[in-house]
Computed example of a mutant assay.
Amino acid sequence: MVQWIYMTAGDKSEAEMLAKVLVEEGLAACVNIFSGARSFYMWEGRFEEGEEYVMIAKTTRAVFPRLRDRVVDLHSYECPCILALNVTDGHQPFMEWISGEVA
């Protein structure tokens, strides 16, 4: 099953590093990076806000545990945002390409 993995990073260089590692190691077929996200959240009892970069990785359910663990190992955040969303439908050739690209 194809999955979209929603993640965030605190700066452009970290987002680009994570994207390159995930694709080069066969953990994601593709990673999109979006700049300019503004995040508002509570952390350790305090209100926080800041700029973040949003990443969407295309992978499969089978590969997700390795992708998640790799991002946790490399990420600067103590508790990085990593959410797996199952893709229930899509352009079949594209979904097959994703499945063929990940290890």
Rank of each mutant, 00 (worst) to 15 (best):
residue 88 T to P: 01
residue 70 R to T: 07
residue 79 C to Y: 00
residue 15 A to W: 09
residue 39 S to W: 00
residue 12 K to W: 07
residue 91 H to W: 08
residue 101 E to H: 11
residue 2 V to F: 03
residue 43 W to Y: 14
residue 4 W to D: 09
residue 48 E to K: 14
residue 77 Y to L: 07
residue 103 A to V: 04
residue 98 I to N: 08
residue 22 L to R: 02
residue 41 Y to H: 10
residue 3 Q to S: 03
residue 21 V to G: 01
residue 67 L to G: 09
residue 94 F to C: 04
residue 22 L to Q: 02
residue 15 A to F: 09
residue 94 F to Q: 06
residue 97 W to N: 05
residue 66 R to Q: 10
residue 29 A to V: 00
residue 73 D to M: 07
residue 3 Q to H: 12
residue 50 G to T: 05
residue 31 V to W: 05
residue 23 V to G: 03
residue 8 T to Y: 04
residue 97 W to M: 06
residue 32 N to F: 01
residue 32 N to E: 09
residue 49 E to N: 14
residue 8 T to Q: 06
residue 31 V to S: 11
residue 27 L to N: 05
residue 79 C to N: 09
residue 37 A to G: 04
residue 6 Y to E: 01
residue 1 M to D: 11
residue 2 V to L: 02
residue 33 I to V: 11
residue 97 W to T: 09
residue 15 A to R: 12
residue 38 R to M: 07
residue 41 Y to K: 12
residue 6 Y to M: 08
residue 32 N to S: 14
residue 3 Q to W: 04
residue 40 F to D: 04
residue 84 A to N: 03
residue 21 V to I: 14
residue 2 V to R: 05
residue 6 Y to H: 13
residue 18 L to K: 02
residue 8 T to S: 12
residue 10 G to H: 10
residue 99 S to F: 00
residue 61 R to I: 09
residue 92 Q to Y: 01
residue 56 I to Y: 09
residue 59 T to D: 05
residue 13 S to A: 15
residue 47 F to Q: 11
residue 41 Y to S: 10
residue 18 L to D: 02
residue 41 Y to C: 08
residue 54 V to P: 06
residue 44 E to G: 04
residue 101 E to Y: 00
residue 59 T to V: 07
residue 16 E to S: 12
residue 35 S to N: 12
residue 97 W to H: 05
residue 14 E to M: 13
residue 88 T to K: 11
residue 13 S to D: 15
residue 60 T to K: 06
residue 103 A to S: 12
residue 99 S to Q: 14
residue 42 M to T: 11
residue 14 E to R: 06
residue 38 R to L: 10
residue 92 Q to W: 02
residue 47 F to C: 07
residue 73 D to W: 02
residue 54 V to D: 11
residue 99 S to V: 08
residue 70 R to D: 06
residue 103 A to P: 13
residue 63 V to D: 04
residue 54 V to Q: 03
residue 7 M to T: 09
residue 85 L to T: 07
residue 79 C to H: 05
residue 87 V to L: 08
residue 28 A to T: 05
